[in-house]
Lab assay of single mutants.
Amino acid sequence: MAAGGDHGSPDSYRSPLASRYASPEMCFVFSDRYKFRTWRQLWLWLAEAEQTLGLPITDEQIQEMKSNLENIDFKMAAEEEKRLRHDVMAHVHTFGHCCPKAAGIIHLGATSCYVGDNTDLIILRNALDLLLPKLARVISRLADFAKERASLPTLGFTHFQPAQLTTVGKRCCLWIQDLCMDLQNLKRVRDDLRFRGVKGTTGTQASFLQLFEGDDHKVEQLDKMVTEKAGFKRAFIITGQTYTRKVDIEVLSVLASLGASVHKICTDIRLLANLKEMEEPFEKQQIGSSAMPYKRNPMRSERCCSLARHLMTLVMDPLQTASVQWFERTLDDSANRRICLAEAFLTADTILNTLQNISEGLVVYPKVIERRIRQELPFMATENIIMAMVKAGGSRQDCHEKIRVLSQQAASVVKQEGGDNDLIERIQVDAYFSPIHSQLDHLLDPSSFTGRASQQVQRFLEEEVYPLLKPYESVMKVKAELCL
């Protein structure tokens, strides 16, 4: 049975990233139509530049190519590739079939990587351009969430054990800070992308030097003109047959890092959902379990974690691919890159769409948070109580021993009897502590235990987050809708 299948058929496997999760716009960027249309555009740009620099290419040939950029006979191309065992030459023939007058000058002087690699770089750039505003929107939604809850005390956790208090907004800023680093890295790697350009079979530009009869300047002009037509500021000066596969490492490393950030955020949300302090959106008709109707599973956060793990592992592909590119190139890269580049971007696209949807509907339960604080705060307040007693004339050592005994009794009630923490009640009825009984409410005010959390939130948002989001103001209103 021949390899390949009808990918629109229910009898043929289709990647869930495309069929179930990723956005239509990201799927289109990695589609065959987008790819092969870009090949034709690159052939047109090459012909236009070659004509401008004096090669015998007519206006009629150029116009014929322009008129057929979208006229792609995919069936013919597939048949040609089956016959020739070469995808680029299959599309040269297919393009030439609908451009008979231009057929002889299509791909003039070029090698397969002229269309293959340059198209990949265009796709990487455009895919990054799709991700950047999506990530900015996630940051914006979380920034709104953090600002609104900047002063809401909550129990902090280290080692997932109760620690000092923080605020809900401050905790959210930990998430935002990681995503801001990801946004900066995505922008950097996007701006650092260079075009492969017009380089020939081993990167020496020998074929173009021959076409222009040894004119170095025209060869350099050709490279520059096509690079500018493709919208790049610069091209690699040095290439082998391909652009260095280190570029793929750079791009997928940034995406993998984004995956790590999203995994951490969504894990926190899942843990908070278990504590009943916070939940992701839950639709009115949504079913959490087929057997347990009360369940409210954090399905979206779980999906993000599941896909983020996949995204983090994909960076190993370009690392290994770059390491086995012998001399000017081997074909070890080809099949692998067809999979890992598309999957990385479709996965990143999915987790950003999902995280935006989550961040637009996060639900906080202040009463649950308050109750958990009441359970733990008495123990945390013991040092403040000791200091207040010393100020009232008591002995630190005597007070410490009193607190120690009462704390152990209260802990026994919590752990052995399943009761509430009654340390404060014990202190309130103990005559030894009568000098500070009137101060206990103040000493137990949760806001006095959150330090500068709310001020940190305000400063972080104003100095770091809002300036970073400013270039994306025009796209901030787009909502994230999930079908599944």
Score class of each variant (00 low, 15 high):
residue 416 Q to I: 11
residue 480 A to R: 14
residue 275 L to C: 08
residue 397 Q to H: 07
residue 277 E to F: 04
residue 188 R to T: 08
residue 263 H to P: 03
residue 191 D to N: 11
residue 151 S to M: 11
residue 324 V to T: 11
residue 215 D to W: 08
residue 423 L to P: 04
residue 226 V to D: 00
residue 97 H to K: 14
residue 470 K to I: 08
residue 138 V to W: 12
residue 149 R to T: 12
residue 155 L to N: 01
residue 387 M to D: 02
residue 153 P to N: 05
residue 26 M to G: 01
residue 417 E to N: 10
residue 254 V to Y: 10
residue 73 D to P: 13
residue 37 R to N: 06
residue 449 F to C: 03
residue 211 L to A: 09
residue 189 V to A: 12
residue 156 G to W: 00
residue 373 I to D: 01
residue 119 T to V: 14
residue 219 V to T: 10
residue 159 H to W: 01
residue 437 H to E: 07
residue 304 C to W: 03
residue 367 K to V: 03
residue 468 L to V: 12
residue 9 S to V: 14
residue 349 D to K: 04
residue 57 I to K: 00
residue 311 L to K: 02
residue 329 R to K: 05
residue 324 V to E: 07
residue 472 Y to K: 07
residue 262 V to I: 10
residue 295 K to C: 01
residue 463 E to N: 11
residue 220 E to R: 10
residue 180 C to F: 04
residue 270 R to G: 02
residue 67 S to D: 11
residue 181 M to P: 07
residue 149 R to V: 12
residue 71 N to I: 11
residue 4 G to A: 15
residue 450 T to V: 12
residue 67 S to K: 14
residue 297 N to F: 00
residue 296 R to P: 03
residue 166 T to E: 00
residue 364 V to G: 03
residue 389 M to S: 07
residue 402 K to L: 09
residue 421 N to Y: 07
residue 285 Q to C: 13
residue 262 V to C: 15
residue 395 S to M: 10
residue 349 D to L: 03
residue 468 L to A: 13
residue 450 T to H: 01
residue 198 V to F: 02
residue 93 H to V: 14
residue 344 A to S: 10
residue 107 H to Y: 02
residue 39 W to V: 10
residue 91 H to G: 11
residue 479 K to C: 13
residue 452 R to N: 11
residue 31 S to C: 08
residue 198 V to M: 15
residue 222 L to V: 13
residue 328 E to N: 01
residue 392 A to R: 11
residue 220 E to G: 10
residue 481 E to P: 15
residue 22 A to N: 14
residue 204 T to V: 10
residue 63 Q to N: 11
residue 427 I to A: 06
residue 163 A to I: 01
residue 134 K to R: 09
residue 466 Y to I: 14
residue 375 Q to L: 07
residue 49 A to R: 01
residue 362 L to C: 09
residue 318 P to Y: 00
residue 83 R to S: 13
residue 26 M to T: 06
residue 132 L to E: 12
residue 482 L to F: 15
residue 242 T to A: 09
residue 176 I to K: 02
residue 321 T to P: 03
residue 313 T to R: 04
residue 27 C to K: 08
residue 60 E to Q: 13
residue 36 F to G: 14
residue 268 D to I: 00
residue 354 T to C: 14
residue 428 Q to E: 11
residue 172 C to K: 05
residue 378 P to S: 06
residue 252 L to V: 15
residue 470 K to P: 06
residue 85 R to Y: 12
residue 261 S to I: 04
residue 197 G to D: 04
residue 221 Q to W: 09
residue 96 G to Q: 03
residue 11 D to L: 11
residue 191 D to K: 07
residue 107 H to F: 00
residue 369 I to S: 13
residue 433 F to G: 04
residue 233 K to L: 11
residue 343 E to K: 10
residue 75 K to M: 12
residue 133 P to V: 15
residue 82 K to H: 12
residue 282 F to C: 05
residue 66 K to E: 10
residue 321 T to D: 01
residue 93 H to N: 14
residue 483 C to T: 12
residue 111 T to D: 00
residue 252 L to I: 14
residue 320 Q to P: 01
residue 259 G to K: 00
residue 338 R to I: 02
residue 451 G to H: 01
residue 288 G to T: 04
residue 342 A to F: 08
residue 50 E to D: 02
residue 332 D to P: 03
residue 51 Q to K: 09
residue 410 A to N: 04
residue 479 K to S: 14
residue 330 T to P: 01
residue 390 V to R: 02
residue 373 I to W: 02
residue 5 G to D: 14
residue 472 Y to V: 12
residue 91 H to M: 12
residue 41 Q to T: 09
residue 424 I to N: 08
residue 410 A to D: 05
residue 115 V to G: 02
residue 262 V to M: 09
residue 453 A to K: 03
residue 2 A to T: 15
residue 168 V to D: 01
residue 39 W to D: 00
residue 148 E to I: 11
residue 181 M to T: 12
residue 355 L to R: 01
residue 357 N to R: 05
residue 225 M to P: 02
residue 267 T to Y: 04
residue 262 V to D: 02
